[in-house]
Design a protein around this nucleic acid. Structure first.
Lengths: 208, 208
DNA sequence: AAAATATTGTGATTATTATCACTATTATTA
DNA sequence: TAATAATAGTGATAATAATCACAATATTTT
């Protein structure tokens, strides 16, 4: 599949999706590009061009069918292709994500958690067992998991990431505020909450 | 202050900052643009142009001073201008963020949490009290707080946001997967974790 | 001291992204 | 039925962002 859709567009697709859920719940069948654009404070032609990429045609004077559009976005973003993952780090963030069971509806199944704290190991959270980190290589191979959500403290992040890579992990969703060094072939996505707040603060509070 | 620095640059500044912390901890005094660029897999001239915006000069054949650069970024991003905030929603995500005490080092002080669950109200978490949501207007005014971190379930997000706005809140860091409707003058920053994962998955797993 | 090398700083170029302006179409209203 | 209005679709244009290329400079090596 050719990556014809840019990251910018993918980001907007997720925003459109949130709005479509709302419309669906309200029982509204059609939505127009100016309506969406107004909600997101963007240009309406942008919205139409994005939908064009999904091969989702609208109807003049009516708009787009909410149901079809939602399904188009879900197909494009891979909701229906379930991906199994582990969480490494059973701290507050790790546990919060483990209970975020909505993930499953979006194609992400968290199968288990890992930690090195003997008190946590053996416990269960939201039907997910917490294993000792040493069990990672074995379970990753047996369950064929190559995605981890990394929520360990900053100081341990690189070391744990190295271990995950040795265990065959190919995709790391990294919540530690660290730029991980990984070999080529391994993909990292950074979710730095503090950094995100700083961007918000700069845009709205400081830099204006 | 004129907003001379674009969001894209601000985003990179937060990434540079993570790397600078690492260098500082290792006791390395200088860092070069190619070093940073290699870590982030971006162009080195990009790094230099970003630093130029901070008025932070480098030295040929040596690079930039880690300490100075880090301070420049922190000044620009407002680390030293403390901002008080409330968390609304004492669920898993809310509690995880409340314990994320690193926030304080980055200029964000969480003063208290709010919830509508009578069991949670009155409890304390990481020295932060959980108040009933009805106390929000009063406390926001008394403590002069106009920033909230919204971590309530999707179904209640808009209603709670409306209430927060009525209470004088001007900045909402929104963790609910909902596009909030707010009056002009109120700023929303969306942190949709599921959407973020979908972007990651599309980029690396699906769309390639 | 001279040559080689690594690095900054930056103008020029290219690529990407967003906006504008307009036509075609379809539903609604007079 | 004709006029009006709202909307999709889209090429052209503008704005923004990233990359390239290279001169200037400082350090290191020979």
């Amino acid at each position: 599949m050719d990556q014809k859709i840019s990251q910018k567009v993918v980001e907007r697709l997720t925003l459109y999706h949130s709005i479509l859920i709302e419309y669906l719940e309200e029982g509204i069948e059609a939505i127009s590009s100016p309506q969406i654009a107004a909600r997101l404070k963007i240009d309406d032609s942008q919205v139409r061009k994005d939908f064009k990429l999904l091969n989702n045609a609208g109807k003049c004077r009516v708009g787009y069918l909410v149901k079809d559009l939602k399904e188009s976005i879900e197909n494009t973003l891979g909701f229906s292709a379930p991906k199994d993952a582990f969480i490494i780090g059973a701290g507050n963030v790790g546990l919060a994500l483990a209970k975020y069971d909505n993930f499953t509806n979006y194609g992400l199944n968290v199968l288990a958690l890992f930690d090195n704290d003997p008190i946590k190991v053996g416990m269960e959270f939201d039907n997910k067992q917490i294993f000792h980190i040493s069990k990672l290589p074995n379970l990753a191979e047996r369950l064929n998991v190559d995605i981890v959500i990394l929520t360990v403290p900053r100081q341990q992040a690189q070391k744990v990431a190295d271990f995950a890579v040795e265990s065959g992990i190919k995709y790391i969703w990294n919540f530690s505020p660290v730029i991980l060094r990984v070999p080529s072939g391994v993909n990292v996505w950074n979710e730095n909450l503090i950094a995100s707040f700083l961007q918000f603060a700069y845009k709205n509070i400081i830099g204006s």
